[in-house]
């Protein structure tokens, strides 16, 4: 029923999109030939001062860049990984001198904390968790939630870090009977955590008590949907999903993001906005990031597309630069910048 009731975002032609919505302001050159896997902007504390830094991850090295001025960056720390390759960066909100990384080949095998102890300023990494890790997310109040295993053997754990990132406390959440695919914190409802499952369900936990509050099956059209953002307003839950497996149709074009509204009391849901590719733009969703009301996606064509979820349409298209397809896109957690990465490890910073 969701597709019939979904409002389709406008499909403007590619030519009508204003590329001026994105202004290049800086570039981080990767001197190594290692393949780029993730990028993130985090607050980092150095000598008692919090700075907006950029973390860039290649398969075998993670680098921390600090700003010299508004356009120049300096690499200040590197962490090396010789045994297991880096898969993704996992920022932990409210911690200022720690970032986590997930390591593995196809699936996550380890989660490590990366630190720079202030006494000797040398890089340090600490193994936090190992095993068959399915999903991981940093959440507010210096917490890291992760799920390991599948179905009945699933364990969902929250670690809480001390302010300096050193010690930690551990707590378990009640597992659902379906394998968790992604986690998302629910903005607007403190202590609510949302998860999507491989069986097209959305689950909600109470982070404080560990209770599993609700499991809600959503339309089968949302298969393998990843949740990029969730917020609660006026008693309803708004969820932004992406659709790596969505099929192109004549009526809806090629869907990339969908805004779904759920009543958590009744488990009823309805799709309210479908973000499709502009007319004439080919490709499907590869990966993306949503912050506030803006959603960015890398398409299989190598182009980055941006949607404004309030306006309901695509606002910018960024084609590959220097014939290099885009492979990473992230909204900065410290300002309104967009971080765009290429496979060769070069990171471009745009103002949106």
């Amino acid at each position: 029923h969701s597709t019939e009731q979904t409002e389709i975002a406008d499909l403007p032609a590619c030519e009508s999109l204003n590329p001026g919505n994105l202004q290049l302001i800086s570039e981080l050159k990767n001197p190594s030939s290692s393949c780029s896997v993730d990028v993130s902007a985090v607050w980092w504390e150095r000598a008692g001062t919090k700075e907006p830094c950029i973390i860039a991850a290649c398969e075998d090295v993670v680098s921390l860049w600090k700003p010299l001025n508004s356009v120049q960056w300096e690499k200040v720390h590197t962490w090396h990984f010789t045994e297991v390759p880096v898969l993704q960066i996992v920022p932990v909100p409210d911690v200022y001198n720690l970032v986590c990384v997930a390591l593995g080949s196809l699936e996550i095998r380890e989660i490590r904390a990366l630190l720079c102890p202030s006494d000797n300023e040398s890089e340090k990494q600490v193994l936090l968790k190992s095993g068959d890790i399915k999903a991981v997310l940093g959440v507010t109040k210096r917490r890291l939630v992760s799920s390991t295993g599948t179905f009945c053997n699933q364990q969902i754990q929250i670690m809480t870090f001390a302010e300096d990132g050193s010690s930690k406390d551990e707590q378990l959440l009640m597992p659902p009977d379906e394998t968790i695919l992604t986690f998302a914190e629910v903005q607007g409802t403190q202590e609510a955590l949302l998860g999507t499952t491989t069986m097209n369900s959305i689950v909600i936990w109470n982070l404080k008590t560990g209770q599993l509050l609700k499991k809600m099956h959503i339309d089968d059209a949302y298969q393998a949907a990843m949740c990029h953002r969730a917020y609660s307003e006026m008693g309803l839950l708004f969820v932004v999903l992406s659709h790596p497996c969505a099929r192109e149709s004549q009526a809806f074009g090629s869907p990339v993001f969908q805004l779904l509204v759920i009543n958590p009391k009744t488990a009823q849901s309805v799709g309210v906005l479908l973000c499709s590719l502009p007319q004439g733009q080919a490709g499907r969703f590869l990966e993306g990031d949503v912050k506030d009301h803006v959603a960015a996606a890398i398409l299989t064509s190598g182009t980055i597309a941006i949607w404004d979820l309030l306006l309901g349409h695509c606002t910018a298209l960024l084609p590959p630069v220097s014939d290099q397809s885009w492979s990473l896109v992230k909204w900065s957690g410290t300002d309104s910048h967009l971080l765009a990465g290429q496979k060769d490890g070069n990171i471009f910073i745009y103002r949106y």
Binding site: L212, S232, N263, K265
Partner: peptide, 23 residues
């Protein structure tokens, strides 16, 4: 679309579900 399709809405859904769910 109408939120009437979603059934009765509660502003305190999180607290209510927390009191109903098993500990």
């Amino acid at each position: 679309c109408s939120t009437a399709d979603l059934g009765p809405i509660s502003l305190n859904w999180f607290e209510e579900l927390s009191s109903e769910a098993p500990p």
